[in-house]
Structure formats: C-alpha cells, structure tokens
C-alpha cells in the first residue's frame, strides 16, 4: 500500500515537465486581467491525525506580485470617410484610446497629418480630449491636449475619446482623401512585447510591455466633396408674324440651364436673372423643369418676380443634376429696330 502511494508521488513529480510541454497553447488576450500590484499568495494546509489528535498545519506562504502589463489600443470612431470641402476650418476626426493593460497608465498622444499614400495633407490645429465624456467635440469646453502636461491617465479597461482638429487646404480637389493618424504610447515605456521596466509598474512591481508593444495607432480619413455650378442661358424669339425676328412685340423665351458637377451638394441655390432693358416681363411665365411657378415671393413656391428680376430657389442640388428655368419677356414697342 505504501509503495503504491509513494510511487504515485514520484510519477507526479517527474511528469511536471512533460505536462508543461503539452500545454503550449494560445495566449488568450486578456483585456486587463488582475490589477497590477495584486499579490498572489498561496498556502496549502495539511490536516491529519497525529499522535496528539487532529492537526491543522499550514505550509509556507508563497507570495508573488502581479506586474503591470503595458497595453493600449487606438481605434478610429468615425464610421467612414468624413466629408469636408476645400478651405474648411476646424474639421474633426474622432478616435478612442483604451488602456488594455492592468494598471493605471498615462499615455502620450501624437497626431500625424503627413501620412504617405494619401492625396493631400491637412493642417493640424490641435488635439483635444473629450474631457466632458459626451463623445462630441465641444470647442472651448473640452480640454486641449498638450503632451507632457495633460497626458490622459487611464485606469485598466478605461478609455477616452480624442479629437484631432484639422484645417483643410484650399487647393484640395473634389474626391481627394487625406489620412490622419493618432498614436498613443504608454508613458512608462514602449518596446517589443516582454520588455521590462524594472520597478516602474503601477503597484510597485515591474512594468512589462504587452502584446500591443504599449503603443498603437489608427487612422481616420477626410474626403473632399466639392461641387460647382455652370449656368447656360439660351433665348428663342417668336415674332408677331410667326417668324423668329426680334422686333417690337416679339416674345423672347429665355432658358437658364443650371448644371451642378462634383461629388458634393450645393446648398440653397438661388438663380436670379434681371429682366433685360427694353423688354417687359410677361407675368406668371416662370417655369422650373416645365412646371409653372408664381411671381409672388411666398414660401411654398420657388419662383418670384420683384419688378426688376426673376428668381428661383432651387434648394439643395446634388452633383450630377440639372435644373432648367424658363421665363418670357416681350420686346418693348418703343424700341426701334
């Protein structure tokens, strides 16, 4: 009986290393894990019947401290390219910085607007921390980031929204993209995974660089969505005799063809045209896309005539669309051909 118990013990001992080799499986990426500085204390207790009755005997206590793991992730929060236009100021890209380590850690933030491979570079205005935590850039309320002064300190698993504010150059063209990246680096240090910073860990232990290298970056993108409008004016003449001569009494029908090009949308487009000298506007002759409009300047009707010029409110016109406006005038009787 004793022999078998004893040999089992020996087997256990010799099998440790073999067992270990079999377990070289994947390292699970724990988000934060046990907080840095936490001691792992282990004490076994033997309970047995000795000569003096039941005995409870504790072993020594092994105490090992959990080090700080330095890990961070940066992710762009914008769902896709952020539309902007040439010469626009204070355009915002949004990022989320998350401490995926297990200790309280400060992070240095850097913006890079000069990424290779994109079409143009924005001008960096500033990096702003979402200090009121609402996820939206609030100028004057959210804190402007200054490296080394207000590096955000994040608890394990905590995150902060960071805004990069940009000015768009005037010479950026429709359809061009700009890449802007945000980098976060652990203030304690960065490097290859496993790099150790002796005694610099949160909680008094070492700090160890985790799988992210203790730094990360991600990019957001701007896309220029510009639009321009071209106006063409045409005239057809109908004289009183059924011909096309421009004589007193002839009716001139003007057509204004507005063509919007580009990937953007022109907003609140209003087309106006003064009535030429020596002609008389023919009332209620404004049309838009073949439909009649009134001369009265009312909210529910796009047309208007103010006595000297007609105007049509086209509202928002996306790129690639055309609007045709017509109106009629009569050549004044007093004009001598």
């Amino acid at each position: 009986m004793f022999k078998s118990q004893f040999s089992t013990g020996c087997l256990r001992l010799s099998a440790i290393s073999i067992f270990a080799l079999a377990m070289t499986t994947s390292h699970t990426a724990l988000a934060a894990g046990t907080r840095a500085g936490t001691p792992i204390d282990n004490t076994a207790t033997a309970s047995f019947d000795g000569p003096d009755g039941r005995v409870e005997l504790p072993s020594n206590t092994v105490s090992i401290t959990v080090d700080e793991l330095l890990d961070v992730t940066v992710d762009s929060s914008d769902p896709g390219d952020v539309a902007t236009s040439p010469d626009a100021d204070d355009e915002v890209l949004t990022y989320l910085v998350t401490n995926t380590g297990n200790g309280s850690e400060a992070f240095t933030l850097t913006a890079d607007t000069a990424r290779p491979g994109d079409d143009f570079d924005t001008a960096l205005v500033q990096i702003v921390l979402d200090t009121n935590g609402n996820g939206v850039y609030d100028p004057g309320e959210d804190e402007i980031y200054v490296a080394g002064v207000n590096d955000p300190v994040l608890e394990p698993d905590a995150n902060i929204t960071v805004f990069i504010i940009n000015n768009i150059p005037a010479d950026a063209e429709d359809g061009q993209r700009a890449e802007v990246s945000l980098t976060a680096e652990a203030v304690t240090g960065t490097g290859a995974p496993g790099t150790v910073f002796d005694g610099q860990g949160d909680g008094g232990g070492d700090a160890v660089v985790g799988t992210t290298g203790a730094d990360d970056d991600d990019s957001g993108f701007f896309i220029i969505q510009a639009a321009s409008i071209a106006l063409v004016k045409e005239a057809t003449v109908l004289d009183p005799f059924g011909g096309t001569s421009a004589v007193p009494g002839s009716i001139i029908t003007y057509s204004l063809i507005a063509t919007v090009t580009g990937s953007g949308t022109l907003e609140n487009v209003i087309i106006s045209d003064p009535i030429p000298a020596n002609t008389i506007y023919q009332t209620e002759t404004i049309t838009l896309e073949g439909a009649s409009l009134t001369d009265a300047d009312t909210a529910d009707d796009a047309g208007a005539f103010d006595g000297t010029a007609i105007s049509v409110d086209l509202g928002d016109v996306p790129g690639g669309q055309t609007r045709t406006i017509t109106f009629q005038v009569e050549i004044d009787d007093e004009v001598t051909p």
């Binding site: 440790i16 390292h27 699970t28 894990g33 076994a44 033997a46 090992i64 080090d67």
Partner: peptide
C-alpha cells in the same frame, strides 16, 4: 519573482513525514 496576467502557473505542494510517528487520514487543502 513577479507575474503578469495570462501567465501559466504550476503549483506544487510537497509533503514529507519528518517524524517517527505516522500521520493518518491526511487531507491537504489548497
């Protein structure tokens, strides 16, 4: 001397009777 989250640990509890008297009904708890 220190650990990080994800470290794989092997705990070893060793026992030995160092006296001439036997111990019976031994239970070792960890």
């Amino acid at each position: 001397t220190s650990l990080i989250p994800g470290d794989r640990l092997v705990f070893v509890v060793s026992y030995k009777n160092t006296s001439p008297t036997p111990a019976t009904d031994v239970v070792i708890t960890n």
